[in-house]
């Protein structure tokens, strides 16, 4: 359904569509290129002679016999034990998302229902905390964590990430709960429920769309974090992102940057699937904060 105001003359149509295609190439091409290149040998991915080698894999054929090779993946996952990092990442993300959402729904619900002034101040401070760069907080953690032997453990990092995540989670869930009519839980309370029972039996069944969206962003924060995980985890507890960074330090000298390329593709794949499945929720989450101001 297009109204007269939306109809555009041909040159403008060409211009906008041309621009769109340009942007799509910009957005997607780097990933396709790296995915393709991760099955080649280093001499092809970084080709001194001709960049086209990365497409046709001349050296890959010479060195391995086939035009695709899984050496990078074997090296990263088995030889350098990337699977361990992947397991740590899974545990970390699962715990962070669960704990964040549990605390966040309780807090966000209370903030959306309270009419007192302090609820505003609570959100205001959360906004200030959201602005803190995580690395500045990390320099505050190190000394006490060393002193109390908390440094290096996975669960310490989980709690830290949950805390850093809280301001954002609270804001987002607060705006979702605002959209759930007050009458719903208030009528349950008139019928004799306590506040918690009203929350448990009336709000929880209808809150899932908002919780799923917020959960996706909590997951992204935990999965994508580098500053906190790189500084607070010991080597055997490392998650995938700091592990990739350590590949760059150690394996580039060995001439095996392909391990890092394979690891990068492995890290990207789950995110790719996530966007594909939850596109609608991610979009609604990005706009939720904006619409509420």
């Amino acid at each position: 359904m297009s109204t007269a105001a939306q109809r555009s003359p041909l040159p403008i149509k060409l211009l906008t569509n041309g621009f769109l295609i340009f942007w799509l190439i910009l957005a997607a091409f780097p990933f396709l290129w790296t995915l393709w290149g991760s099955f080649k040998v280093e001499g092809d991915f970084f080709s001194k002679a001709n960049w086209a080698n990365a497409i046709f894999g001349r050296l890959t054929v010479e060195e391995t016999g086939g035009s695709f090779t899984g050496d990078g993946y074997y090296g990263a996952w088995i030889q350098e034990e990337f699977w361990r990092a992947a397991m740590n990442s899974t545990i970390l993300c699962f715990c962070v998302v669960t704990i964040s959402l549990t605390c966040g729904t309780l807090g966000g619900y209370a903030l959306s229902r309270s009419t007192y002034r302090y609820a505003f101040w609570f959100l205001f401070f959360a906004l200030i905390f959201r602005a803190m760069p995580p690395i500045t907080l990390v320099s505050g953690y190190l000394l006490p964590f060393y002193e109390w032997n908390l440094w290096g453990h996975l669960y310490t990092t989980v709690i830290v990430l949950v805390a850093i995540n809280q301001p954002f989670t609270l804001w987002m869930l607060h705006s979702f709960f605002k959209n759930i009519p007050k009458d719903l839980d208030e009528s349950a309370m008139v019928d004799g429920c306590t506040r918690f029972q009203a929350f448990r039996h009336v709000i929880i069944p209808v809150m899932w769309p908002g919780v799923i969206t917020t959960g996706l962003f909590s997951f992204l924060l935990a999965y994508n974090d580098f500053a906190v995980t790189a500084m607070l985890l010991s080597e055997e507890n490392q998650t995938m992102i700091p592990k990739i960074n350590s590949f760059l330090g150690t394996t580039q000298t060995k001439g095996n940057v392909m391990f890092a390329v394979a690891a990068v593709v492995s890290v990207t794949a789950p995110l790719f699937v996530m966007v594909m499945v939850f596109q609608r929720q991610i979009v609604s989450g990005l706009t939720a904060g904006a619409v509420k101001g």
């Binding site: 780097p30 790296t34 970084f46 580098f226 890290v267 966007v275």
Partner: peptide, 29 residues
């Protein structure tokens, strides 16, 4: 279009910048 546009944002910053950096390498495309 929205799907492909979201990719650079959702991707891990460290990983996204590495991907770009490898392409910008003197031996990259």
């Amino acid at each position: 279009t929205i799907f492909f546009s979201l990719l650079p944002f959702v991707i891990t910053p460290l990983v996204g910048s590495l991907v770009l950096f490898w392409m910008l390498d003197a031996r990259g495309i």
